[in-house]
Each structure stands twice: as C-alpha cells, then as structure tokens.
C-alpha cells in the first residue's frame, strides 16, 4: 500500500495538469527504508512528449547524488498519461528499474476527474496497490 499526504497528491496532480498534453514526471523522495514519500521533486520531461517521458540525464545524476547525500531514496516515481488510463504501459514496465519504488500513474485524459493509481513493477510484473491519502504528515 502507498500512504501519501494529500498535499503531495495535489502537487503531483497539479504538475500533471500543468504539463498536459505532454507527460509530466517526477519523484517523491523519502528517508531510505522508511517507505515515506516526503520530498516532492518535479522533474523536466526531457522527451517533452504526449506519449513518452524521460528524466534528463544530467538532472537524473544530480537527483540521485542529492538523494544519496541526504540518505534518501525514490519512494514514489510518478508520471502522467495524457490520453490513456493510469495503468503502466508496456514501455513503463520495460524501463521500470526501481523495484522498491511505488510507481504512481496519473491520467489527465479526463480533465475534471484525474485518475491517481499506484503500482509495484518488479521484474516485469505489475501489481496495483491501494493508495491511502492522509492529511498532514505520513507517520
């Protein structure tokens, strides 16, 4: 299960809406091993595409160095689908490389009712998980 603060959910959805019709992407980092998504880090989609996202390679290095120095890990890796449902595509599955992360997908296909779902992607296997949205800090 993913437990995540309402403020962070709102920030992810706002980012997805802002970049629509291109895909938006980013990370929510948290203390290593804690499973607590705490630090919202929107990333630039270097592909600037409605059907693809990729973190810029320099930004990626900077992000991982920063998380390393703060003893953090990517607890959530999020991106948006802008014309399809919030479910991992074949491309998402083949490039998923953080077995401990929650892969959050947001769909902005419906402008009003934004879909927000979370998955584990391990060795090509997708498992959807419940999302618990809490107000205030995640315990």
């Amino acid at each position: 299960m993913l437990t995540i603060a309402q403020t962070i959910v709102d920030a992810i959805v706002a980012h997805a809406r802002l970049d629509h019709p291109d895909e938006a992407c980013g990370v929510v980092a948290g203390p290593a091993g804690s499973d607590r998504p705490e630090r919202f880090i929107p990333m630039v989609n270097a592909a600037r595409s409605p059907t693809f996202y990729e973190f810029d390679s320099k930004d990626l290095l900077k992000l991982y160095r920063e998380m390393d120095s703060l003893d953090e890990e990517p607890v959530v890796i999020y991106h948006s689908h802008t014309a399809t449902q919030a479910y991992p595509s074949r491309t998402d599955i083949s490039y998923a490389s953080e077995p401990h992360a929650h892969y959050v997908l947001v769909s902005t296909a419906d402008e009003v009712d934004v879909e927000f779902r979370s998955f584990r992607i391990v060795d090509g296997e997708v498992t959807e998980e419940p999302v618990e949205i809490v107000t205030g800090e995640v315990e």
Binding site: E23, C25, V27, M43, A47, S49, P50, T51, F52, Y53, E54, F55, S57, L60, L61, Y64, I77, H79, H81, T82, A83, T84, P88, S89, T91, D92, Y95, A96, S97, E98
Partner: peptide, 11 residues
C-alpha cells in the same frame, strides 16, 4: 563511474 538506469516510460 556512475551507472543509473534511465527513469523513462510512456503511454
């Protein structure tokens, strides 16, 4: 030398 898998995907 640092190895980092791309964070990428798409619809």
């Amino acid at each position: 030398v640092t190895v980092l898998p791309a964070v990428a995907g798409g619809a």
